[in-house]
Simulated assay, not measured.
Amino acid sequence: MNTTPQRFSIYFNVHLVSDSTGETLNAIQRAACAQFENVQPLEHNYYLVRSERQLERVMREIEAAPGVVWYTISDEVLRQKLESFCREHGVATLPVLDASIAMLGRHLGISANQKVAGQHALDDDYFERMEAINFTLAHDDGQNVDGLVGADVILLGVSRTSKTPTCVYLANRKVKAGNIPLVPGVPLPPFIEKLGPKGPLVIGLKVSAERLVQIRRQRLISLDQDEHTIYADEAAVRDEVTQANRLFQRNKWKTIDVSRRSVEETAAAILNLLNERKA
């Protein structure tokens, strides 16, 4: 008989707030979490936050799902507003670049210029990346579906299959990515199933029903909502996943199982598929 005690995963909310692409935050957050066993961060990503209106939305999200906040924001007014809000609500914050910038400033004997997205040179590569990011943000979660004909890749998947963070990650690699959620009873835009080999690459994100139930229940718990709803009901989720898989199979779309993949691994697999297609 196995007497080894079972170790349950620890779930927590982590809010990544950036006035740029968020690539630095994502890399540091994942590197830090990898040092802890059985820790599963529930990521909330906010990119290109450069106005008080955008920050207000971020703070509402933080209040709804308390956790930890890591940020890279250069604007002093926005920084102070975010820090003050988090102190009032007892939320831990970390300006991830401050220590590195301060150390480098002391070594060089000069002050940093606090430039937004200063790591990005204003060359063709930069503008291509920003164009991809703007496209992705405009075509996230089923928005502006008619414009998806201009995408490099379209991701389809049921709720909580990491469609948005994967698209943003791809955009940072200059890939114009959009995504459409598969919602029971809601048909896809007709043109999606008619896209030919010269159109955007359509990829279905698959996930096991067991894993999806776990993710959705933890999401509801983090939002202080009832976890016993049809959204996380095992039978309903299993049917939802089955219908999605049948859709992928019927259209002979490429699929990626994201049940145990990180966003980086999913994006890497998509980039490989895009490269194969170009070749």
Results as ranks from 00 to 15, higher is better:
residue 2 N to C: 04
residue 4 T to P: 01
residue 9 S to M: 10
residue 13 N to E: 13
residue 14 V to F: 03
residue 21 T to S: 14
residue 35 Q to K: 15
residue 39 V to F: 13
residue 39 V to Y: 13
residue 42 L to R: 14
residue 43 E to L: 14
residue 46 Y to A: 08
residue 51 S to W: 00
residue 55 L to E: 03
residue 60 R to S: 06
residue 60 R to I: 01
residue 63 E to I: 02
residue 67 G to M: 10
residue 76 E to Q: 14
residue 79 R to S: 11
residue 83 E to I: 15
residue 90 G to H: 05
residue 98 D to M: 04
residue 102 A to G: 00
residue 106 R to G: 00
residue 106 R to M: 01
residue 109 G to P: 09
residue 121 A to F: 08
residue 121 A to C: 02
residue 123 D to L: 04
residue 123 D to C: 03
residue 129 R to C: 09
residue 130 M to A: 04
residue 133 I to C: 10
residue 154 I to S: 04
residue 158 V to A: 05
residue 160 R to L: 09
residue 160 R to S: 12
residue 160 R to Y: 11
residue 163 K to A: 01
residue 165 P to N: 11
residue 165 P to H: 12
residue 165 P to E: 07
residue 167 C to E: 00
residue 186 V to W: 02
residue 190 P to S: 11
residue 191 F to M: 10
residue 193 E to G: 01
residue 194 K to P: 00
residue 195 L to P: 04
residue 197 P to N: 04
residue 205 L to A: 02
residue 210 E to A: 13
residue 217 R to G: 15
residue 227 E to P: 09
residue 234 E to V: 08
residue 235 A to V: 14
residue 238 R to S: 15
residue 240 E to D: 13
residue 243 Q to D: 08
residue 246 R to F: 02
residue 247 L to Y: 05
residue 248 F to G: 04
residue 249 Q to P: 01
residue 250 R to S: 12
residue 252 K to M: 07
residue 269 A to F: 01
residue 269 A to K: 13
residue 275 N to E: 15
residue 278 K to A: 15
residue 278 K to Q: 13
residue 278 K to W: 00
